[in-house]
Nucleic acid binder design. Structure first.
Lengths: 142, 142
DNA sequence: CTCTTTCTCATGCAATTGCATCAAATTTGA
DNA sequence: TCAAATTTGATGCAATTGCATGAGAAAGAG
C-alpha cells in the first residue's frame, strides 16, 4: 500500500478536527436558539439560491452530499413543517421538484443570524483575509 | 450580528465539503473491506498511542470529540468484540480505564492498510509537501 | 460528620441513519 | 415493440445517535 507521510496524517487529523469543532459549535448555537439543525439550513439555502426556488431531490443530494434515503425523509419532515413543498416534475412521473416556501425562506433568514455569527466567530475572527483566501484555495484542490 | 464575508462563508463550505468527502471515501473503503467504521479505528489508535494502552473514557471523549453517551455505547460494542477491556480505576470507583487488547491492536493494523491508503490517495496525491505543510499550519489556527 | 453538589459513567426512549429492497416510470437495445 | 435494465424516489427494519435522566462515588461546605 501507499504509506501516507506523517505530515499528511497530521493534516487529516487537523482537517477533521476543525470541521467537527466548527460544526458542533454551530449546531449548539442553533439548538440554543430553538432552531433546527444545519442539515435543514443547507437544504433551505440550496433551494433559495436558485432563482426559481426549486430543485430535484437528486440535485440536492449531490450538492450537499446527502444519502438518497436520508434526504427523502428529511424532506418529509420539512414538508410537514411547511418549509418546502413537493411538486410533480413535468414530463417525468418518477421525478419531482422540491420548492422552498415563504415560511422556508423566513426560517433560512432567521437561522442565518445564528449560523453566520458562528462562522464568523470561528473562522473570520481567527484568520485574516489573506489566510482565508489561501486556505480556501488549498482546500479547493481536494 | 457579525456578518461573515463571502470569502469566509466560501471557506466554510469548502472545509465542510473536503472533510465529508474524504470521510465518506474512507468509510466506503473500510466497509468494502469488511472492516468497522472510522470511529472504532479512532478509539483503537488513540489507545494504542499511549504507552500503557489505557485511557479513561473521558480522555477519549475529549481527544476525539465524542459525546459521552455515544462513547459509552461504542465501548460496549467494542468490548463485546474483544477489542478493548474495561478495568477499574485504582482509587476511584466511579471511574474506569479502557485498555486495548491484542485483538484490538491487530484490527487497528489491518484497518490502517485501508485507511492510510485512502488518506494518501485523497491528500498525499493531490498536494505537494509544501502545500500539506501550509494547509496544516493554517488549520492549526482553528 | 452529613448534606449538597459535582463528577463519572450508564441507560430508557424517541429521533435519525444505514441498509436492503421495493414500486413505478423511463430508457435501452435486440 | 417489448422485455430487460436503469433511474427516481419511498419504506421496513435494524443499528446508531441525541436527549434526559439515573445511579453510584467522591468532593466540598457548613
Amino acid at each position: 500500500m501507499q504509506r501516507p507521510s506523517e505530515a499528511v496524517v497530521d493534516l487529516w487529523i487537523r482537517l477533521n478536527c476543525a470541521q467537527r469543532r466548527l460544526r458542533a459549535n454551530i449546531e449548539a448555537d442553533l439548538k440554543k436558539a430553538g432552531l433546527p439543525s444545519l442539515d435543514w439550513y443547507s437544504v433551505l439555502l440550496h433551494l433559495k439560491r436558485v432563482e426559481c426556488g426549486r430543485l430535484s431531490p437528486r440535485e440536492i443530494e449531490e450538492g450537499l452530499l446527502f444519502e438518497q434515503y436520508n434526504l427523502s425523509r428529511l424532506l418529509d419532515r420539512m414538508e410537514k413543517e411547511g418549509l418546502v413543498r413537493r411538486i410533480p416534475y413535468p414530463g417525468d412521473k418518477r421525478r419531482q421538484l422540491i420548492e422552498i416556501t415563504d415560511k422556508g425562506r423566513g426560517l433560512q433568514k432567521r437561522m442565518w443570524l445564528i449560523y453566520g455569527a458562528a462562522i464568523d466567530r470561528f473562522l473570520g475572527a481567527r484568520l485574516d483575509e489573506g489566510q482565508v483566501e489561501q486556505l480556501s484555495t488549498l482546500l479547493s484542490r481536494l
